[in-house]
């Protein structure tokens, strides 16, 4: 753990803030002090895990880590201004302090997928947890096969990590397809929800598929992948819940007998099916 006491956040300092869209920012963090705790260094986490980020007085919210553990020096969180805590986070600037607990949850088993071809399908800010894996894979490029990235946003102003997405597409053996929901002035790319890009990966049903986005997007994407012949075990998603504790106690993130914070947030579609709930 980054923090030594269960509910006590560890102080982190905002090293840099980047505007990603009109309502989404990327925070680059470092810990303020060293800590005699188990995972004391800022990159001691795995792709897909999340932290509980605190602005004291406003509260605490679960945010997935969007940097890769291959980045040695910092932790990055992608925060959209949607509620009390995220609004308070948005008021923070460079050198300001916030609290971090974690890392919590399970992770994408990316290290066990060496040699595999991978497809990433993201919707909106759902790209954030996938970005952690994508960066990990690109940093260890020789360990993995082909990479296809499908990304959809509501409008072109909603696209997060636009410059990074462009750079990913320039790398060898990486294809990137981006779409926005409705036609828009100044947009010459694909138009339609992200599932309209699925025919780009018709041939790729042997790839491992990572899906993250709003629940409706996950629902239709998985349906589309199954129609294309994907196996349930090869569809990997990460679920959103508002955990209050992050450690399997407060009860808020239940699905059947599972808690998304400790049993998830990463599940294969086969596991989700077994839990017998809508995504």
């Amino acid at each position: 753990m980054f923090n030594s006491k269960l509910y006590i956040p560890r102080a982190a300092i905002v090293e840099n803030v980047k505007e990603l869209t009109y309502d989404t920012r990327l925070y680059r963090l470092k810990f303020k002090y060293n800590c005699k705790c188990k995972s004391s260094s800022v990159n001691d986490f795995k792709c897909g895990q999340f932290v509980q980020a605190s602005v004291l007085g406003a509260g605490e919210a679960p945010i997935s880590i969007c940097s890769s553990p291959t980045a040695q020096e910092y932790l990055e969180l992608c925060v959209r201004d949607v509620g009390r805590v995220t609004r308070a986070l948005h008021k923070l600037g460079k050198a300001d302090e916030l609290g971090i607990r974690g890392p919590y949850g399970n992770w994408f088993a990316i290290e066990e997928l060496k040699g595999h071809d991978l497809v990433f399908i993201g919707g909106g800010i759902g790209l954030a947890p996938l970005r952690s894996v994508i960066k990990f894979v690109l940093d260890k490029r020789d360990d993995y096969g082909k990479v296809i990235i499908l990304y959809g946003a509501r409008t072109k102003e909603d696209i997060v990590f636009a410059d990074e997405i462009e750079n990913w597409g320039k790398q060898e053996n990486v294809s990137v397809f981006t779409t926005i929901d409705k036609p828009q002035k100044g947009w010459t790319g694909h138009v339609g929800v992200v599932t309209t890009l699925l025919d780009k990966i018709k041939h790729a049903f042997k790839y491992k598929a990572f899906v993250c986005g709003p629940s409706i997007m996950i629902h239709f994407t998985i349906k589309g992948l199954l129609d294309l012949g994907w196996a349930e075990e090869d569809i990997i998603t990460t679920l959103e819940r508002h955990m209050k504790c992050g450690v399997g106690k407060c009860g808020h993130c239940y699905i059947g007998d599972k808690y998304v914070c400790t049993d998830g947030p990463v599940f294969t579609y086969a596991q989700i099916n077994e839990m017998a709930v809508e995504v």
Partner: peptide
């Protein structure tokens, strides 16, 4: 089951 809520007691202090 529980909730975790911050209560600001002033601009500079409060409780979780």
């Amino acid at each position: 089951c529980y909730n975790i809520v911050d209560i600001a007691l002033s601009d500079k202090s409060g409780i979780r």
